[in-house]
């Protein structure tokens, strides 16, 4: 009986014009795309990270301001805090050391002093875990779920993302980039919905940010867990006051 997918059969060479890499690598790439895709229902696309409050108060009114907001968040919070926990959790997950995964999780939770951000991290983390468990069969994902239910660990989104990425057999660099892509596209989408960015400008902005993403991903890989930091004073205040907005499209 011929294989159902003949082009994936090890006995039949892949047509050169497709330039298709080996099956595991293709599978990895598809997993990367699936995880980074806005279609993946992790709940992170309900977040504006303070942008909605800033737009309503007219602090963000144009595409350059959206770009500045994104760069600020990426360099002064996501890269210096979330990604550091993600890298630590990924390495611990690869080493099958769940205790270290929980340590990264609890450190990130304790260093996220703004309640609105903390709650969003936990809600989206748990939503991601729920979806991931239905896609990948993995003992660590099940253990994580049990630990969250037992309140042994809070389940912050970057940490769950790290373990899901490992379960999807992505390497560290790909998990970092998938997380960043997910974060940035979510916020760019929020900017479009808030009416401060058009679709074409959104694509330019995503392209413009690519070197920033590489820079902060590289920096996060050499930052110890004990040196997480953040410094976004105006965004902190915007996030803290988000609940006081009279009409809201986003969770934070």
């Amino acid at each position: 009986m011929p294989p159902l997918l003949p082009y994936l059969s090890p006995t039949i060479p892949t047509p050169k014009f497709l330039n298709m890499p080996s099956f595991p690598l293709t599978q990895q790439r598809l997993t990367l795309m699936q995880l980074a895709d806005s279609f993946f229902p992790s709940g992170s696309f309900t977040l504006s990270h303070g942008m909605e409050a800033m737009v309503q108060r007219q602090h963000i009114t144009s595409a350059p301001e959206v770009e500045e907001f994104l760069r600020l968040l990426l360099h002064n919070r996501v890269g210096s805090s979330d990604l550091v926990a993600l890298v630590h959790a990924y390495r611990a997950s690869v080493a099958q050391d769940l205790t270290e995964v929980y340590r990264a999780d609890r450190c990130l939770f304790a260093q996220t002093v703004i309640q609105e951000t903390r709650e969003a991290q936990c809600k989206t983390g748990q939503a991601l875990l729920m979806v991931a468990q239905s896609v990948w069969v993995d003992a660590q994902l099940e253990d994580l779920q049990t630990a969250i239910e037992a309140e042994q660990t809070p389940g912050c989104h970057p940490v769950i993302f790290a373990v899901v990425g490992r379960a999807g057999e992505l390497d560290e660099g790909d998990v970092l980039l998938a997380y960043l892509h997910n974060f940035v596209t979510g916020l760019v989408g929020a900017a479009i919905r808030l009416g401060v960015l058009g679709h074409l400008r959104a694509q330019q902005l995503l392209h413009n940010l690519s070197s920033d993403l590489l820079t902060i991903a590289t920096q996060a890989q050499i930052t110890p867990l004990s040196e997480m930091w953040s410094c976004t004073p105006a965004i902190d205040i915007a996030q803290m006051s988000h609940r006081q907005l009279q009409a809201r499209q986003f969770v934070n």
Binding site: E65, L72, N76, C107, A110, Q111, W229, C231
Partner: peptide
């Protein structure tokens, strides 16, 4: 650990210092 609040503020090299979004 109950919580930690860590700030790293660049001065002359701070590309966001003049930004009202910062």
């Amino acid at each position: 650990l109950v919580f930690a609040d860590t700030m790293h503020l660049s001065g002359q090299q701070n590309r966001f210092a003049a930004s009202p979004l910062f």
